[in-house]
Amino acid sequence: MIKFLGQRIFQMILVLFFVSIVVYSLIIIIPGDAATAVVGADASEEQLMIVREQLGLNEPVFVRYVKWVGNMLKGDFGRSMTTNHRVTTLVSIRFPITMQLTLCGMVLAVSIGIPLGIIAAKKNNSFTDMVLRAITSLGMSLPNFWLGLLLILFFSLKLGWFAPSGLIPIKQSFFGWMSTMILPALTIGTRFTAVVLRQTRSALLEVLRSDYIRTAKAKGLKDIKIIRSHALKNSLIPVVTVIGLQTGRLFGGAVITETIFHLPGMGSLIATAVSQRDYVVVQSGIMIVAITVLLINFIVDVLYAILDPRIRFK
């Protein structure tokens, strides 16, 4: 297990290195002079100088990259070019909100997707299964920005149940927080739920066809017991992977949901920075998102190893 952890950590560091190169090259690929792109063609030479300094354009690429990574390792992600706030300060406010949103979406997907997936697999090819499969197909194709608008239109504007935007902090009032979180969570979690449902169904179906389930039946075990103790653990292995990967996606996919519901999270931070050409925030924001996704994937891998002895001991 320790060997496995060591390997995974080494791999993660390697990937992080590549990630940093990708993120860094976002600045390099800005066509023409990046500083001009930021302040506009009619800016004075002095303004250009300041921006060049901020973006560190005065030194060779390699030196700049090393400095940038060095600063990040020290916990310095730079300062916003528009507000001059530290990126770390901005992120510390916004990160928890995106994390809450992501976790709510995940809870939704797991608590609805897995049970429904099990039902669909158990009643394979029945009417229930057909209905669930149709809903899954629709759910997979629903663009979240459109779903968000539909939800606001129906639940906020028509029924007046929930506020259409904004967030009540969880510390202030849990139920208030719930009421502001529920629509965004539905928006971000619907597709995720469909994905989990589909994955659970197909994984369970595959496991139920396997030889060791036949053995379990030949042993005389009850159907419920077979599903609970023999099939579920095996079929959850791919489901956990999908949940992990999708949670990462969700964390990034929050951009649109946050924009629609005016939630001050990481996604809307980056989206705003993009529209303001605040490259420092864009760069650091994307880097932080990528690190988070990698960490989530790492946790999933560890879970995976706990579930599946074949990986743990290899």
């Binding site: 590549f18 990708v22 993120v23 990462g248 996919g253 993009v274 490259y279």
Partner: peptide
């Protein structure tokens, strides 16, 4: 490494 970016975020960065 590319895979570990949520695609909308990376596309946002590139498009920016």
């Amino acid at each position: 490494a590319l895979w570990s970016f949520p695609s909308i975020i990376l596309a946002l960065g590139i498009a920016a």
